[in-house]
């Protein structure tokens, strides 16, 4: 029974990270219709920025996380301004090609400075909590709580503030947003900044129990795409639910079937769910 609960913790941990990454991806897709393949690179840069701030500048884990979030937010806004904004009237394929270009560029850039080696990000939360035989490493608990707090904060921001309302308005009706005088550029920059913050925090939370290396974003972004397709492109609840589904499937599949196949499970689930519900679990626009 304890092993079963252990897998629930693992599933929640994985689901939280996937959910955070997928949230940023789904926001950008839902509002700007850009499938941002470079989102995984932003995640990777987030991990490296935290690594750099902690190891080279010696700041505390929390400060590194905040710094990394700020840097990646600026980087995401720069991507929007310099790459996606000029392409806004081009055919959609141009966005996709440009996103892959950013991905390759950022990976090469990081590799130039830090090399392709695997690195370890240390965290002050190395303890292990033991609840009557149920073992939870502190970092995993932090991931679950952190993701929950972030999602709640994002919901509050989107529902209760005027800036948040403009983002949702833009997602529901672009023309309507223009008619009431919402500035599309501000919304676009804000959306990219949020996606960058989410990616950087997810990376900084997850890096201490994983490794930091230039290609670390590949599998994460593939799964994030699976998640937002599962959940319905552009749907916020869909991204969270999809993240949890993939996280749990991997944790349980890895444990009860085989760890060797855990990455296949996500893509297998995609095939199964899409053959039953081709529009995704949550219809698009269900904010």
């Amino acid at each position: 029974m304890n092993l079963f609960f252990q897998q629930i913790i693992n599933g929640l941990t994985l689901g939280s990270i996937y959910g955070l990454v997928a949230l940023g991806l789904t926001l950008v897709y839902g509002i700007l219709h850009i499938p941002n393949f470079a989102h995984g690179a932003l995640y990777m840069v987030g991990a490296f920025m935290s690594y750099f701030l902690m190891m080279d500048l010696g700041v505390h884990y929390w400060v590194a996380m905040a710094g990394s979030a700020a840097i990646v937010a600026i980087l995401a806004v720069l991507c929007e301004r310099l790459v996606f904004h000029p392409l806004r009237n081009s055919p959609p394929i141009h966005d996709k090609i440009a996103a892959i270009g950013i991905l390759l560029f950022l990976e090469a850039l990081v590799q130039m400075f830090w090399g392709a080696d695997f690195r370890r990000l240390s965290s002050p939360f190395t303890g292990i909590l033991n609840f009557d035989g149920l073992i939870i490493p502190e970092q995993r608990l932090l991931i679950i709580v952190g993701a929950f707090v972030l999602v709640a904060a994002l919901q509050l921001f989107l529902r209760k503030t005027m800036i948040g309302a403009t983002i949702i308005a833009m997602a529901q009706s672009r023309d309507g947003a223009f008619l009431v005088g919402i500035d599309a550029n501000r919304v676009a920059m804000m959306t990219f900044a949020i996606s960058g913050v989410l990616a950087a925090i997810a990376a900084t939370l997850y890096a201490p129990i994983n490794l930091v290396y230039p290609a670390m974003g590949h599998l994460v972004i593939m799964k994030a795409f699976v998640i937002i397709i599962l959940g319905g492109m552009g749907s916020i609840p869909g991204a969270i639910a999809g993240g949890m589904i993939i996280g749990f499937a991997e944790a349980f599949g890895g444990f009860y079937i085989s760890t060797a196949y855990k990455d296949i499970i996500a893509f297998g689930l995609l095939v199964v769910i899409l053959s039953v519900r081709p529009q995704g679990l949550f219809a698009k626009g269900a904010h």
Binding site: A165, I168, A169, Q172, S173, D175, G176, L179, G285, A286, H287
Partner: peptide
């Protein structure tokens, strides 16, 4: 505008 262009889920 024509077609109203409301925010349907709000």
């Amino acid at each position: 505008a024509e077609g109203r262009k409301l925010f349907p889920h709000m």
